[in-house]
Amino acid sequence: MLGQITNIKQHKIIFVTFSTIIACLFLVLIISGIIGIVNKIEFGDEGAYRDTISIQGQGKIYAKPDIAYVNLSVITQGYSLKGTQDSNSKKMNGVIEFLKGFEIEEKDIKTINYNIYPQYAYEDRKAPRIVGYEINQTIELKIRNLDKVSEILEKSVAAGINQINSLRFWIDKDEELKAEARKIAIEDAKKKAQVLASDLGVELGDLIGYNDDNSYYPTPIYRAEMGGIGGGGETPDIQTGENEIIINVSLIYEID
């Protein structure tokens, strides 16, 4: 009996000793973690924070456009839907054949709108009734020869077009111009960074960040007026003007 009591006491002592060791180790880990956090707060991680400046630059390029886009519409009204559709299609097909005479390819003619509008008559105390139809078909035309723009606008009316809008001028392949504007923007940002660093009394370090965005501004011509187009009027005087390509960049430098 005495031997059993002695064994139980020994087991208790061993268990208490093992538990104490585990608790001490756990306490050491907690204290080490707290010390590490305090050190990070007090001294900071190396490289976690860097002094930097950010500067913006802009590059602009002006160039004459080399293509034009314009929307041409045929609007037809009639009493029957089929008759109105047939009439509208005949007019538009004639317009497309006319445009091909200016060496405009099919890939540069795109239908962008086709609408049928029932026309209603309204009488007192009666439900509205359909008395006819209006069909509006619009094509977007890409004109690669700008010397032909005025003539196309004038003669397309005689060919069947009765609405012209959204005339705008564009640069077909502008990647080289964008690259040139980007170089100007980067040089502008570099010069500004040197001036700012001098004003702040610091030295520029490594370039660690770059970003750019590009903006493209077509010539602000949005509508060709119908006056003077067709019906024996004078050929409209269309000015292409210049397009403006703008590139904005942002550079980030470390500073010492």
Rank of each mutant, 00 (worst) to 15 (best):
residue 97 E to V: 12
residue 81 L to W: 04
residue 87 S to Q: 14
residue 83 G to H: 02
residue 78 G to N: 01
residue 77 Q to A: 12
residue 104 I to E: 10
residue 68 A to E: 02
residue 94 G to R: 01
residue 104 I to A: 09
residue 59 G to A: 02
residue 108 D to H: 06
residue 108 D to K: 00
residue 79 Y to M: 11
residue 71 N to V: 15
residue 37 I to Q: 04
residue 93 N to K: 12
residue 74 V to Y: 10
residue 47 G to C: 05
residue 58 Q to L: 11
residue 78 G to F: 07
residue 62 Y to N: 08
residue 69 Y to L: 14
residue 36 G to V: 03
residue 82 K to C: 00
residue 36 G to R: 11
residue 99 L to C: 11
residue 53 I to W: 05
residue 36 G to N: 13
residue 92 M to G: 01
residue 87 S to N: 15
residue 77 Q to E: 09
residue 65 P to G: 10
residue 65 P to C: 09
residue 68 A to H: 03
residue 82 K to V: 14
residue 62 Y to G: 00
residue 113 N to E: 13
residue 90 K to A: 14
residue 55 I to A: 04
residue 89 S to I: 15
residue 69 Y to G: 00
residue 54 S to T: 15
residue 88 N to H: 08
residue 95 V to M: 10
residue 76 T to G: 05
residue 104 I to Q: 02
residue 45 D to R: 04
residue 37 I to R: 11
residue 106 E to Q: 12
residue 43 F to M: 03
residue 82 K to E: 13
residue 57 G to D: 02
residue 69 Y to C: 07
residue 72 L to A: 08
residue 65 P to V: 07
residue 106 E to P: 00
residue 68 A to G: 07
residue 89 S to M: 14
residue 44 G to F: 05
residue 41 I to N: 04
residue 67 I to T: 07
residue 50 R to C: 05
residue 66 D to Q: 07
residue 79 Y to H: 00
residue 102 F to T: 01
residue 73 S to A: 15
residue 84 T to N: 05
residue 81 L to C: 09
residue 107 K to M: 04
residue 70 V to I: 13
residue 57 G to Y: 02
residue 71 N to M: 15
residue 69 Y to F: 15
residue 98 F to N: 08
residue 93 N to A: 15
residue 86 D to A: 11
residue 56 Q to Y: 12
residue 114 Y to T: 02
residue 48 A to C: 02
residue 60 K to N: 01
residue 65 P to Q: 13
